[in-house]
Amino acid sequence: MMKILWVLGLLSGSALAAPTAAEILSNVDRGLNAFKDGTFDSKLLVHDGGSAREYGFTTFQKGSEKRLVRFNSPGDVRGMGVLLENKETMYVFLPGFQRIRRMGMHAKNQNFMGSDFSYDDIAQTAFSPSYTAELAPEEPSSYVLELKVKPKIETDFPRMKMWVDKSNWSPTKMEYYDASGKKVKTQVRDGYHQDGPGHFQPTRVVVTDHRRGDHVSEIVFTGSKIDSGLGDDLFTQRALLR
């Protein structure tokens, strides 16, 4: 059924009547979450002048909310784990202390490992629950959406602009604006390839933080595995301790 919906979605993006902004955003969300579970191997590169600090990590995801991030390198963070059970519940495991700590959600204010990605960037897998969309003038290969935050939703970015690839409903570029309307971050996703039914995975995500003098961080995805049957018990504190 999902496949049929997905094909219909693709058709609606290419051959049928022009979709509305809400439909485009809904298709984006559906594409981002077109799997029951996924395992993603990644490298985070935090650029600093001509050099870059590199972190290797694997993300396990089930549904749109449950995530377990396990760091593989470098040595000082190896074994560290971050478990996001839902938007309100986050745990960190520090292997050096053999301790799991419940983190206040204020931690989302911090950068992910000192990069330009926030924990929100890492966790966000759906935009429709938080934003309403309006169409902006489209480009030859992309729809362009203006997103505005819904009432009662707290975010550092009340406005966004999103470019969506017409061929696969994947976001290729996002601009983030603060409350004063100033562009503060730009995220570019490229190298999309299909790794599962209806799921397109970027090879690279690059974030530029304009508040930090256009400082750049990127995540390079080195592997992905979709719908391998990850169990719920992987997303528990007991599993985080392992």
Binding site: E88, T89, R102, M103, G104, M105, H106, A107, K108
Partner: peptide, 14 residues
């Protein structure tokens, strides 16, 4: 007992 107070900016408490 530990948690996070979302109405206070996600402040953590224990």
């Amino acid at each position: 007992w530990a948690g996070s107070l979302s109405k206070l900016g996600g402040i953590g408490y224990w």
